[in-house]
């Protein structure tokens, strides 16, 4: 491969990774925008999502890469996989909010954040105990279709990832911008007290944010499985940290920022792996996280948040 086509190939890979990170980053941003809480449980809601997706696809009769579907059957199976996964992780997120985080909502200090770490740890170990430590073969019904562009290869699964990510992000943008509850979310993010006094049901808004964020993490989990063809109990940690970096890079609390940040982090990972070495990719990404936080804490698209204290 020439350097140019290598670069193009890594751009394609980076966009796919980036689409996945963006889906995950949106969950961090939605919750942070409203509660100013870093939700570490999100890491492993995503991980659980990969398993839900796997079990759903297996429940639909797929196993490994042996069953290949075409046309409407393929679309129906994938749509069912996404729908079930998103609903289950969405409900999981709402459950975490309702039963664990809501009692701590008015507690000052790091209590809520520590609790999310605990929840994350519980999810992680539940999967570890009941599934085991080995990698699981993730079913993939997509045919091996490839398109060659200037020496680089685009696979069908990558096209699927882009389509899914774009559709979900457009849907989320429409939801936040144009629906009543979306408007209530934006109002609550700016000033929960004032929103409450204007009749916004803040509890419902927060639950909605958790549902949407966790559902997107579930979609991200399905995408992860289809992209890598495996899953394991440990996949939440690295992907979660990268997605969080993406959210911060874009400007945490900022929905388009999370999408942009996800794409940028995906590109950095792909290009960094190619040109610096895969084992250093995380060092590069975390260095970016630190630099952004230190020099531009509002992120690429964020503005300096008004002081809520």
């Amino acid at each position: 491969m020439t350097t140019a086509s290598l670069l193009l190939q890594q751009l394609i890979n980076g966009l796919s990774l980036g689409a996945m990170y963006a889906l995950l980053a949106l969950g961090f941003t939605l919750v942070y925008g409203i509660l100013e809480l870093i939700n570490f449980a999100h890491f492993n809601v995503f991980m659980v999502g990969t398993f839900i997706a796997m079990w759903t696809l297996e429940g639909l009769g797929l196993s490994g890469q042996s069953v290949i579907l075409h046309g409407p059957a393929l679309i129906a199976v994938l749509a069912a996989g996404f729908a079930v996964t998103m609903v289950v992780t969405g409900v999981l997120g709402v459950g975490i909010e309702r039963f664990v985080l809501r009692p701590l909502r008015d507690v000052k200090g790091p209590a809520a954040m520590i609790t999310t770490i605990g929840v994350s740890y519980v999810l992680f170990n539940v999967i570890l105990l009941f599934v085991g430590a080995g990698s699981q073969n993730f079913p993939n019904p997509m045919p091996q279709a490839r398109f060659n562009i200037a020496g680089a290869v685009i696979e069908l699964r990558e096209v699927l990832i882009w389509v899914v990510a774009i559709v979900l992000m457009l849907a989320l943008t429409f939801f936040v911008q144009s629906t009543k509850i979306g408007r209530a979310m934006r109002a609550t993010a700016q000033d929960p007290e004032a929103a409450r006094m204007m009749g916004v049901e803040v509890d419902r808004v927060i639950m909605t944010a958790f549902f949407l964020g966790s559902a997107l993490a579930g979609a991200g989990g399905m995408v992860f499985g289809l992209y890598y063809n495996y899953t394991s109990f440990i996949v939440g940690f690295t992907a979660g940290l990268r997605a969080f970096t993406a959210a911060v890079l874009g400007g945490i609390g900022n929905v388009p920022g999370a999408m942009l940040g996800g794409i940028v982090i995906g590109l950095i990972e792909a290009l960094g792996s190619q040109f610096v070495g895969a084992s250093w990719a995380d060092v590069v990404i975390f260095s970016i996280l630190v630099l952004v936080l230190v020099f531009r804490p509002a992120g690429l698209l964020g503005r300096v948040a008004p002081n809520k204290s």
């Binding site: 664990v100 009692p103 701590l104 209590a111 809520a112 520590i114 609790t115 770490i117 605990g118 929840v119 994350s120 740890y121 519980v122 992680f124 170990n125 539940v126 570890l128 105990l129």
Partner: peptide, 17 residues
């Protein structure tokens, strides 16, 4: 003994709550 980290997670959440 496999469940020790699960217990850690539960302790963390339980103590906070």
């Amino acid at each position: 003994t496999q469940a020790v980290e699960l217990i850690f997670g539960v302790v963390l959440v339980g103590m906070m709550l």
